[in-house]
Design a protein around this nucleic acid. Structure first.
Lengths: 341, 341
DNA sequence: CTGAAAGCGCTTACAG
DNA sequence: CTGAAAGCGCTTACAG
């Protein structure tokens, strides 16, 4: 606990030079004589001197720190985004400070202060559906925060939020997922979503219905059910769906909001005596690390979460004002096949 | 991007007071007349002034930031520790900076600088087995880092590392896991570990063997196999074990290093025609979020990762120099039963 | 209740 | 190649 107290003056004095010279040695500057450099470096090592990035930040008004606001950290989906962003930030010499949405969406004053007082060089904010009141607050916070630092929004960003952004094209993903199942021969395709359709800024429902229309399949209201994104909710949702219909009308394929929901569907299907994929094909989303190891291995939409994090940092540091779509792909595994019979 | 430039002088001037007074209003200090306070606050709001924690840190020499070094972030196990630590840090008014071990274990100089230059108020470091050379480097880094900030070590911390620490009692966990299976009637119990025994600072193998001895069961070398902690490795490890023995000698229970390995065992067991839990009981570790949703639901050791993160922050902030054992418990689910026949 | 002044630990022109 | 000095934006005694 002693090295913490040695500063640039101590080093300068011990090495018998000025602090300017120490500062130059520190930054590996051009013009220092080899002899002086050696002497200063020796003192630095001996005293375990470590310059304060805080003090440096004072004069350069750069903190080399970015921020990221995520809904939660326990969900591997967000951990993947964080990891991608973190690695890219480190690669550029920045650190990445985490903030949780629950701390971020306080009253507008405190929320802005939370990030702004740290003088971050920029921030990435994950956006998804929020209830009306919180949404208004978020908009005010973004407006004010923008005065303090550049911002990049990621996730499900409404069109009218005018910021650099990388967004998920969920409607298109749903449309193509339906098309994929149709291509396998399915005609009864269910969709388990996480939100009532009119609350989903990405309108997955629009893509789902479009996919059905593309294939000239009817929209069946009972094939459209809701969960809240957890395995329990997925299991309950598929239970409800199956129990409300005659087995002859059961869907032959299910598209789940995400892999956790899909995992719940697996349990429900098993309990209803359905074999996968023969009796029921299943598509998840997020391609979490357990997806390949389920039984059967789960077909899932890879949203390239790490890549998204990386790109968000790149966009933030570039200063561009672009709005882009995130990359994605369908990872085909054994949970989908043509329907039996 | 304007508010970023307004400082305490601007506010003082606009409100026609000294910066001392503004500073007092900012910190909600005792002695400011209501009228003055109101006037200053009005200016602060109007100018969107947000004080710099950087500048504050300069004078108070406190950054209100802690650090945590984790092997990786993608593994949910570490994300849980991080989350627990993060929440507890925020609760105490601190932020929590993440560092990845790969960035931390550079040459000792740069590694120390990585944390020390940010003048963190303390750091938590996750320790686990490291190859010899890296281990020496780690020890040097810890020794030097200690000069700059208080440290708490967590994870599998060797006895001779003299720091405040919260450690996993893996040997005891293994011993009790064996005892649990013995209690169900098992006599042929395999253990899939992640490291060669002599590399594991927590000596899981010692607990495993002790558990067998406690029950007067023989140690069977072929029941002791290794993977590297992934599902693929777990699957391959159980494959090897089963393929090397006559079915009559197959174990009736397997203890896996962690839930990912256990998940791989599930695939291997299925392929070998084994029913769970009738033909094979299975215990995982870490109690990850998918464990309850596997088929069958996986019995797993809960290491209370979030709690560990919380306690590490508490220990760090308390300044105590204690070495403690982390809490844990066995979560019983359907993957274990008495052996068939 | 309020203000003037020193100081936190650096970087950056500016001189020489 | 090197140094003296100003400045970054705050807090904290110290006076009054």
């Amino acid at each position: 606990m002693d090295a913490a107290r040695v500063n640039i003056y101590d080093v300068a004095q011990e090495a018998e030079v000025s602090i300017s010279t120490v500062s130059r040695v520190l930054r590996g500057a051009e013009s220092v004589s080899p002899e002086t450099r050696r002497r200063v470096q020796e003192v630095i090592d001996r005293l375990h001197y470590c310059p304060s990035s805080i003090a440096r930040g004072m004069t350069t008004s750069k903190t080399n720190a970015l921020g990221i606001v995520l809904p939660k950290m326990l969900n591997p989906f967000y951990a993947m985004i964080y990891t991608g962003a973190f690695d890219e930030a480190v690669r550029h010499g920045y650190s990445l400070n985490m903030f949780l949405r629950k701390d971020f969406l306080l009253d507008p004053q405190r929320s802005v202060a939370l990030l702004a007082e740290r003088r971050l060089d920029g921030a990435i904010i994950y956006i998804e559906y929020l209830p009306h009141e919180a949404d208004d607050r978020l908009r005010e916070i973004l407006r004010n925060l923008k005065r303090h630092m550049p911002l990049v929004l990621i996730g499900c960003v409404p069109q009218d939020l005018d910021f650099p952004a990388i967004t998920f094209d969920m409607a298109e993903i749903l449309r193509q997922s339906v098309a994929y199942l149709v291509g396998l021969g399915h005609e009864r395709i269910a969709f388990i979503g996480g939100l009532q359709d009119d609350q989903d800024p990405m309108r997955r429902d629009v893509g789902y219905e479009q996919g059905l229309r593309d294939a000239k399949l009817p929209y069946v209201a009972s094939y459209r059910v809701y969960g809240d994104g957890t395995a329990e909710a997925g299991e309950a949702a598929l239970d409800r769906l199956l129990d409300s219909l005659q087995p002859a009308h059961w869907p032959t394929a299910v598209i789940a909001l995400n892999d956790m929901v899909a995992m719940g569907c697996l349990s429900s299907a098993r309990r209803h005596g359905l074999r996968l994929p023969e009796d029921l094909s299943l598509i998840g989303c997020d391609n979490l690390l357990f997806a390949p190891h389920l039984f059967p291995p789960l077909t899932s939409v890879n949203l390239n979460q790490q890549r998204l994090g990386e790109q968000a940092v790149q966009l933030l540091l570039s200063g561009e004002k672009a709005r882009r779509q995130a990359e994605w792909s369908l990872i085909e595994r054994a949970s989908c096949s043509k329907p039996a019979g």
